[in-house]
Design a protein around this nucleic acid. Sequence first.
DNA 1: GGCTTGGATGTTAGCGCTAACATCTGGTTT
DNA 2: AAACCAGATGTTAGCGCTAACATCCAAGCC
Lengths: 344, 344
Amino acid sequence: MSNPELPERRKRRGADNPTLADVARESGVSTITVSRVLNSPDSVRPATRERVEAAIARVGYVRNMLAGSLASANSRFIAVIVPSLSNVVFIEVIHGLQTTFEKHGYQILLGNTEYDMRREYELVQTFLGWSSSALVITGLRHDAACTAMLKRWQKPIMEIMELGQGIDLNVGLSHYDAGRCMAQHLLDRGYRRIVYAGSQMDGNYRARLRYEGHRDLLQENGLEAPLEEWPEASALEIGARAFRQIMVQRSGTEAIHFADDTLAAGAILHANRAGIRVPDDVAIAGFTGLPFGQHITPRLTTIVSPREAIGRIAAKQVIARIEGKPIENTSHDVSFELCIGEST
Amino acid sequence: MSNPELPERRKRRGADNPTLADVARESGVSTITVSRVLNSPDSVRPATRERVEAAIARVGYVRNMLAGSLASANSRFIAVIVPSLSNVVFIEVIHGLQTTFEKHGYQILLGNTEYDMRREYELVQTFLGWSSSALVITGLRHDAACTAMLKRWQKPIMEIMELGQGIDLNVGLSHYDAGRCMAQHLLDRGYRRIVYAGSQMDGNYRARLRYEGHRDLLQENGLEAPLEEWPEASALEIGARAFRQIMVQRSGTEAIHFADDTLAAGAILHANRAGIRVPDDVAIAGFTGLPFGQHITPRLTTIVSPREAIGRIAAKQVIARIEGKPIENTSHDVSFELCIGEST
DNA sequence: GGCTTGGATGTTAGCGCTAACATCTGGTTT
DNA sequence: AAACCAGATGTTAGCGCTAACATCCAAGCC
C-alpha cells in the first residue's frame, strides 16, 4: 500500500538538453556505450555504433563537456599564459600552439598577464581549477607562491621563450646571448657609440636580459652601454619618438640597438621622413625578425627568433608528456639567427 | 563469518586535491557556506567568512570550476569564434573582448575557423558543450545547420564585424558602404582605371562585400571594375607580388584598391624599392587603418574601422544581455572613417 | 559437451559542486 | 510572552558524465 506517487522530484535548472541517457534510450543501449561511441569508437561494434550515431543525430545531442571532464578529472584544456596580446610575437607563438593542440583535440584557455606577476598567479589558480591537462607559461620567473603551486601540480608544465632550467619542460632561446650577438655585430661594423633602447623593461625582463648581454659585451671591449627606456608598450610611434629623442639628447650616437623590431621599424620609418640616412647617419638594429622589417627600406638588421616554431615545439613536447612518451631533453634550445639587413 | 570490513570503496582517479568538504570540515561549517563565501561573500556573516577564508588558505584549496559549472549549468565561458589569427584585425578585436570580459570574471574560449564554415560549426558545437554563457562569432553568414542550432540556443549570441540583422545581437559596420566610400574617393581624385585586389576572397566574404560596393559605384559611373584575387592569406609579400603582377599585366592602371592594409602596404614598400612613385605612377588604397599605414612613406589612404572598439562594445552588450539589462538596439553600427593619406 | 577466452556491453558509484528547500538564530512586534 | 520575521546556515538531491568492476556471449579448443 505504498504511495503510488513518488514525492515530486525537486526541479533543477538545467537547460534540459538531450543527455547521454536520452541517446541511450533512443538507441536501446546503456549510457556507457554511448559514451564509448564518443570517446573510443573502436571499442564498440560497428553496428551498435551506427545505431548510436543515428540516435545522436536524431535527438540533436550535444555532449556536455563539463560533466565529462568532471567525471574523468581531465578537461583537455591547455592553459596558456602570455604577458601581452599587443605584441605580435606572442600571437605567433599562440598560433603555433593552437594549431598543434587543436589537431590533438585540446582547447586552449588563454590568459594575458599584462606583465603583472600577481595577475599571472591568479590566472594559474583559475586555470588549475579548470582541471587543465597542461600549462604553457611565458618565461622562467614567476611569483614565489606561484612557482610553489606549480611544483606541487602533477601535470605537464611548459615554460617558453626563455632558455634555462625550469619547473618541468622548457622551450626557448638565450636572450642574453642574442643581445651579445647583436652587440658583437655592431662592433664588427665599427660602431662604438651605441645606445640600447627598449620599452617597458621592468616587466619585460627578457628584453632586459638582451640588454645585459649587449652591455657585458660592450664593457668587455671598454665601451659604455647607455640604456634608454620608455614606459609605454612597444609601438611604431614609440620607436619614432625614441629615435627623435636619442638623436637630440645623445648627438654623436652611431648606432641604436632596439629591444624589438617594432621600435626599430618605427625609428627607420621616422628617419626616412626626417631625411636622416640609415645607416650612414645612424645605424639601427632590432630583435625578433618580424616580416615587415624585410620590406621597409633599408631592410632591418635584426635577430630572428623562431616564434611559431616555439609554439609548435612546445605543444609537441607537452603532448608527448601527456601521452606518457619519453622526453629526451626537458630543455629545448630553439636558437636564433642574426639577419643582417641594410640598416647597420 | 561475514567480512567485518566493508567492501573496499571503489577508487576513483581524482588528484585528491582538497575539496569544499575539506574546507568545510576544517572551518566547522557546511559545504554550502563555503560555496557562499566563494560566490556571494556578502550573504555570509563576516566572522564566519574569515574563518572559512583562513581554512581555504590553510588547506591550499583551489576550487574546481568544472564541478561548479556543471552544478549551476553555467561556466562563465564566452565562446569567441574568429576566422583567422594571422590577421591583426581579429587580434585587436579579441583584445577588446578579452579586456572587457575579464573585468567581469568571464573567460574566453577562442576558436579559429581558418575561414571554413564546417570548422565553424564544429567549434560552435564544442563550445555549446562547455555550457558557455554566450557566444561571439564573426560575420552573419554561417552553415545552415549551425544557424539553426544557434537559433535554438537560449543564451546571448553576438555576431560581429558585419552590420545587419542577425540571430540575436550584432556589432559591426557596412563593408559594402566602405568599399563604395573608397571607390568614390578614388573617383574624386580623378582615377578611372582602377583595379580591386584581394586575397582569399572566397572565404573572406566581407572583403567581397567591399568589392561589391566598389564595383557598383564604378559601374554606376560607367567604369569597369576588374578584380584580381590571390589564394594566399594576406601578407606584405602577397601585396608586393600582386602589385608587380598588376603593373605588368594591366599596364595603364591608375589606382589599386586593396582589400586590406597589409596588401596595400606591401605594394607601397615594394614600389619604393622598385622606384615606382606612389601616387604619381599609380595610386594605392587599403582598408582597416592599421597603425603602420601611417608610418610608411607615402602615408596610406585607407578606411579606418574601430577594431578594438568592436570588441569592447560587443562585450558590453553581451554582458548587459547576460545580466538581463534591457538592450536598445540589437544591431550596433560602429561605422568607419575615410583616412586620406598621401598614397592616392 | 564443457571449459576457456576475449571482445562487447552493462551496472554502480561517484567526480565536486550548487539550487532548492529546510531549519535555526536572535531580535522585534503586539 | 507568544508570534513573527529576516538573515544566516544547513540538508538533500541532483548536474551529466565516466572509471572501475561485472556480466554476457559467441568462438575456439580439447
